[in-house]
Design a protein around this nucleic acid. Structure first.
Length: 321
DNA sequence: GCCAGTCAAGTCCCG
DNA sequence: CGGGACTTGACTGGC
């Protein structure tokens, strides 16, 4: 028996004026003459983003959704070099602790997917450094939300640099310079252009990192199309975690734009996948990555309801029987 | 109120 | 080696 729990990414198509990613670019910031006022504006944006996250969490609870990816753009310019004197954590302390209270009362699985500019296998030390700074920001935010940081940040392996084997070894090399507290936050995901399931598994097994399998990326980028043989290895990487296995599900937009995410997830595609993993693991968290965000999740929830071999537990949780 | 252009970042691709 | 594409959602400016 396997329990499947579905989640969605960062923002809602149903809630109005509830973006958790409002922003100010550095060029906008620079144009403002009064730096103090500009920082106050950044702080207002960050506070509004976090308040909107709380609204999203309430929306999730009301909809029986227990799995959610937070936007990584909650605090605009938090990592910017020119703003290193800005104590953004102090500025957002209030709403962040409200969020922590809410999460404590309504537990769910919450994580981040820092954008692809976090590159841990870079041979350039400055790029590694800024990447670690970005991870440090995620660490602070998680702690502020009262969330155990273990395995909360999904990352890609990084650049191929014309020699993937060397790039994988560079990852291992760089990993040695990363403090254990940050290492503990990281999960790795196969990507759609460079590092495949097998290559990502190589790192995950070597370094004890849980592997987030992205089925769509695998379809777009693989040595051999079959993944079932490697699925057991993916499951094993989660022995390194106290959390259940997690993966990513999305559908190609079209044959021509195969790598792009479609608005919704094709239920047949998903059901076919589920039939292959049934019984292999007690619980799977599936992050639905679709353009229509929560609306796509709601549609999938409906599509799965009443299907053969699927028993509904609650809104977004299903038992495969 | 809509549409095109801009903004950030690192990598990759082309010339 | 240099410039442009890629990607994402938010925002700005022109009409």
């Amino acid at each position: 028996m396997t329990i499947v729990r579905l989640g969605y990414v960062a923002m809602s198509m149903e809630l109005q004026n509830c973006s958790p990613s409002q922003t100010m670019t550095f060029s906008q910031f620079s144009k403002l003459k009064d730096r103090e006022a500009a920082i106050k504006k950044l702080e207002r944006i960050a506070i509004s983003n976090i308040e909107n996250c709380i609204r999203l969490l309430k929306h999730n609870n009301a909809s029986e959704i227990h799995f959610f990816r937070l936007s990584s753009r909650l605090v605009p310019l938090a990592n910017h070099d020119e703003l290193s004197d800005w104590d953004f954590m102090q500025a957002i302390r209030g709403p962040l602790s409200q969020m922590a209270d809410y999460i404590a009362e309504h537990p769910s699985r919450i994580d981040f997917h820092p954008d692809h500019f976090v590159v841990l296998n870079s041979p350039v030390s400055d790029i590694l450094k800024i990447s670690l700074k970005t991870l440090r920001m995620h660490e602070l935010l998680l702690k502020g939300m009262g969330i155990d940081i273990e395995h909360r940040c999904v990352l890609h392996v990084g650049g191929g640099y014309n020699d993937k084997e060397k790039a994988l070894e560079q990852f291992i090399h760089n990993w040695g310079f990363i403090k254990p507290e940050i290492q503990r936050m990281v999960m790795l995901e196969n990507d759609d252009t460079t590092f495949t399931l097998k290559e990502t598994l190589y790192l995950c097994e070597k370094l004890g990192i849980p592997m987030v399998f992205d089925y769509h990326h695998h379809k777009a980028n693989h040595e051999t199309d079959d993944w079932e043989d490697d699925w057991g290895r993916v499951v094993e990487t989660w022995n390194n975690s106290t959390l259940p296995l997690k993966m990513h599900i999305s559908s190609p937009r079209s044959e021509k734009e195969f790598r792009a995410h479609s608005d919704y997830v094709n239920p047949e595609f998903f059901l076919d996948f589920l039939s292959n993993v049934k019984g292999s693991v007690p619980e799977i968290y599936c992050m639905i990555e679709a353009k229509q965000k929560d609306a796509a999740l709601f549609r999938l929830m409906e599509d799965l309801t009443g299907k053969e071999g699927i028993e509904k537990i609650d809104g977004s949780s299903f038992k495969l029987i």
